Simulated scan of single mutants.
Amino acid sequence: MPVSRHSIADLVAMPFDYITLRAEDRVLVATLNRAAKRNALDRQFVEELYDLFHAIEGSEVRAVVVAAEGDHFCAGLDLVEHHREDRSATDFMYICRRWHSAFDRIQHCGVPVIGALKGAVVGGGLELATAFHIRVADTSAYFALPEGQRGIFTGGGATVRVARLVGEGRMIDMMLTGRVYSGEEAVAVGLCQYLVDADECEARAIKIAHRAAENPPLSNFAITSGIAHIGNMPSADAFFAEAFIAGITNTQEDSKERLAAFTNKTAPKTVKP
């Protein structure tokens, strides 16, 4: 694990326009705060996400919850900014690459990231959400990729992250027809792992984050980064990488202590998150 560079207090004090931060013990709650624009992502917003999760890497934080102000989690790319900028193909290619970098920072920041999703989780908002490790949705949340109807194409990683979750066929359907997933159907296809009442979403996400924060940091790092990287490898390479990660993780001091507690029947019982 990287050497810690930031305390939780340092992170909470970071000056952002579109993200508000608070600490819940070892859990950092990051709230998207551009509700007047349905938390749409413009260039500055993406830079703030990049900077935040770069700072989280190697910090004292043990888990992160990403929530949102207003009725919607994130409506995706700020189409008004995009239209007004009249970008060239090269300009927009670099915008996409910056989104990729920011969302990779989230996925590989080394700690569990849990999303508290509501309202619109569409387009770039869905691309952002699929960079999280666990997604908790309330009953108002709906998931869509309306790029086809807008005459555009995904640029924030959906062709990788969304396609892995729901499959290429479902993703193509979402883009061509504007199909929307919500409720139990969204859980069934893998867009979220939990579905809760509207007034419980953030609290459930924080509860899950606290539960994950109890794990040894090295174990959480291995889980949140190792599985994604292994998924990109041919089978023989994946098996080798799995064995290498297991060799390091399963022999750490925290692992020895917890296995001793399990052997002695003093370990806490597993309970539902």
Results as ranks from 00 to 15, higher is better:
Ser4His: 12
His6Arg: 14
Asp10Phe: 00
Leu11Ala: 03
Ile19Thr: 00
Ile19Pro: 09
Leu21His: 06
Ala23Trp: 08
Ala23Glu: 08
Asp25Trp: 06
Asp25Glu: 15
Asp25Met: 07
Thr31Asp: 06
Thr31Glu: 12
Leu32Tyr: 04
Arg34Val: 03
Asp42Met: 02
Asp42Pro: 06
Arg43Gly: 11
Arg43Leu: 15
Phe45Arg: 03
Val46Thr: 07
Val46Ala: 03
Glu48Thr: 00
Glu48Ala: 00
Leu52Arg: 01
His54Lys: 13
Ala63Asn: 06
Val64Asn: 00
Val65Gln: 05
Val65Pro: 05
Ala67Pro: 01
Cys74Trp: 02
Ala75Tyr: 05
Ala75His: 07
Gly76Leu: 07
Gly76Glu: 03
Leu77Pro: 00
Glu81Ser: 05
His82Ala: 15
Glu85Pro: 01
Ser88Gln: 04
Thr90Gly: 12
Asp91Leu: 06
Phe92Gln: 11
Ile95Gly: 11
Cys96Lys: 09
Trp99Arg: 15
Ala102Asp: 01
Phe103Gln: 03
Asp104Lys: 13
Ile106Arg: 01
His108Tyr: 15
Cys109Ala: 01
Pro112Asn: 09
Leu117Cys: 04
Lys118His: 15
Lys118Gly: 14
Gly119Asp: 05
Ala120Asn: 11
Val122Gly: 11
Glu127Pro: 06
Leu128Asp: 00
Thr130Trp: 00
His133Cys: 02
Ile134Asp: 10
Ile134Pro: 04
Arg135His: 02
Arg135Met: 08
Ala137His: 05
Ala137Gln: 02
Thr139Pro: 03
Tyr142Asp: 06
Tyr142Gly: 11
Phe143Val: 00
Leu145Ile: 10
Pro146Glu: 06
Arg150Ser: 08
Phe153His: 15
Arg161Tyr: 07
Arg164His: 13
Glu168Phe: 10
Met171Phe: 13
Asp173Cys: 10
Met174Ala: 10
Leu176Phe: 13
Arg179Pro: 05
Arg179Ile: 01
Tyr181Trp: 10
Ser182Ala: 12
Gly183Pro: 07
Glu185Phe: 11
Glu185Trp: 10
Val189Gly: 02
Gly190Trp: 05
Gly190Cys: 04
Cys192Tyr: 00
Gln193Tyr: 03
Asp197His: 10
Asp199Gln: 12
Asp199Lys: 08
Cys201Asn: 09
Ala203Cys: 04
Arg204Val: 08
His210Thr: 01
Ala212Trp: 08
Pro216Ile: 03
Pro217Val: 01
Asn220Arg: 04
Ile223Gln: 08
Thr224Ser: 05
Gly226Leu: 03
Gly226Asn: 00
His229Gly: 06
Ile230Thr: 07
Asn232Leu: 12
Met233Phe: 12
Pro234Met: 11
Ser235Asn: 13
Ser235His: 13
Ala236Ser: 14
Ala236Arg: 14
Asp237Met: 14
Phe239Ala: 11
Glu242Thr: 11
Ala243Thr: 06
Ala243Met: 13
Phe244Asn: 11
Ile245Pro: 00
Gly247Pro: 09
Thr249Tyr: 08
Asn250Trp: 12
Glu253Met: 11
Ala260Leu: 15
Ala261Ile: 00
Phe262His: 15
Lys265Ala: 10
Pro273Ile: 09
Pro273Tyr: 10
